[in-house]
Design a protein around this nucleic acid. Structure first.
Lengths: 226, 226
DNA sequence: CTGATGTTTCGATCAGGATCGAAGCATGAA
DNA sequence: TTCATGCTTCGATCCTGATCGAAACATCAG
């Protein structure tokens, strides 16, 4: 009956409480898994899967397959601005919700992601390797350079002995929003750092702790770029 | 489960197709009646009434009672910006709708509103009267000044003979977004201008047409301010 | 006053979609 | 390979909310 864009489709997508919770959680900029999002929204994994599919079709979010996980983020700046406009309007009308406790800061600093280093330290390692030319970003993922291979030898790692298909993989970080290094090389680096006593595990949680000397050695080996 | 504003309420409000149509129609900035909005949305008046109540409660639109009409507008810049963000997102995703024929431009230029002059000419008359001090804006509506009374006499109108309670009323314009003059004085002015041959009616529609000499006389009597 | 028009309320119907249990599929660990 | 975990699909249930007919209410014209 009217011209102009159809705003009902997108608005109805955001209008469901479960989906709105999912989008609000993604407004932190973090990449979250389907399970984490279902917890945030207070629904089961099946229901979340259905909602995530709809949000994908509506172009509001984007997904990245990552092993047996699937990481979801907002689709881009356009979507973020839209949610932000909605939040601004709702906040001006005094429509607020309850809040929950904050996340564990130790997990954000350094943690185990499967078998490699994640968190702020993981991002620092990854970006340092790229900035110093040890890692190159190819279309199909990061790849070790000659300088990178030599560097690994100085760390006591022989990349030639590693098997599995892609030696390096970029892994979306859970707390940061950027990538860190996964794959056999990432695994070998963490194992080596544990052998050298740089890093220890906190209990049986996923949190990792640097020893004082380990932290200094880590910052020397992987200086943060810039 | 989460902190932050509750965006689902507002988004669900916009998410219904009928309500989205109403909001899209109001994005023109015009003030529209409930019936006009129900036509735009393709629903009956009863259904539109229900939707309009919800939009009012949600703070997206505002209403102004006007005799037996109720004029609706977007509630303000905040709401307009929100709809605009939605339209931008939907347009980028290529979600468009069909379009209908354009409105009659003659209706926008000058038309009958009950018994007084509306459209661009109506707004010109109203604002000219105010700019020249013939009309004063009081809290309870516009009021005739002494100069205004004298001016009406030169037009051949005796406001002392007019009865009904508020001699002047501001009437939200349908095509323009501003007010024009209603009430007995507005009615008398239009009647007089028709008597003097300034204005004729086009068929039995609501559209009015100025005669060439009438247009000149009108612009002389009610020069647009500024 | 009476009649006409614009709007709202009431009541009932009905469909779309949110939800979850159970099962199926894919990936990674051992 | 086998097992565990993350995610998706299928199927069925159930409830919110959109819709409209009829009637009530308010305003204006005559």
């Amino acid at each position: 009956m009217k011209d102009g864009p159809d705003i009902a489709l997108t608005a109805a997508l955001i209008g469901d409480p479960a989906r709105a919770n999912i989008l609000s959680a993604l407004m932190s900029g973090k990449a979250l898994t389907a399970r984490e999002l279902s917890d945030e929204a207070g629904i089961t994994a099946q229901t979340a899967s259905s909602h995530l599919r709809k949000l994908l079709e509506g172009g509001l979010i984007a997904a990245t397959a990552q092993g047996r996980h699937r990481y979801f983020t907002l689709s881009g700046a356009e979507a973020a601005r839209l949610i932000e406009a909605l939040m601004g309007f709702a906040a001006a009308r005094g429509q607020l919700r309850h809040r929950t406790g904050p996340r564990d800061p130790a997990l954000r600093a350094a943690r185990l992601c499967y078998n490699h280093l994640a968190g702020e330290a993981g991002v620092q390692l990854y970006e340092s390797l790229i900035a110093r030319g040890h890692l190159m970003l190819a279309p199909d993922g990061p790849a070790l350079t000659g300088a990178g291979t030599a560097f690994l030898h100085t760390m006591g790692i022989a990349p030639e002995g590693l098997r599995r298909k892609p030696l390096c993989r970029a892994c979306l970080d859970w707390s940061e929003r950027r990538s860190h290094l996964a794959g056999p090389v990432g695994q070998a680096l963490l194992t080596r750092m544990q052998e050298m006593g740089w890093i220890t595990r906190i209990g049986d949680s996923r949190a990792l702790r640097f020893t004082p000397t380990g932290r200094a050695a880590f910052d020397h080996a992987f200086p943060p770029p810039g």
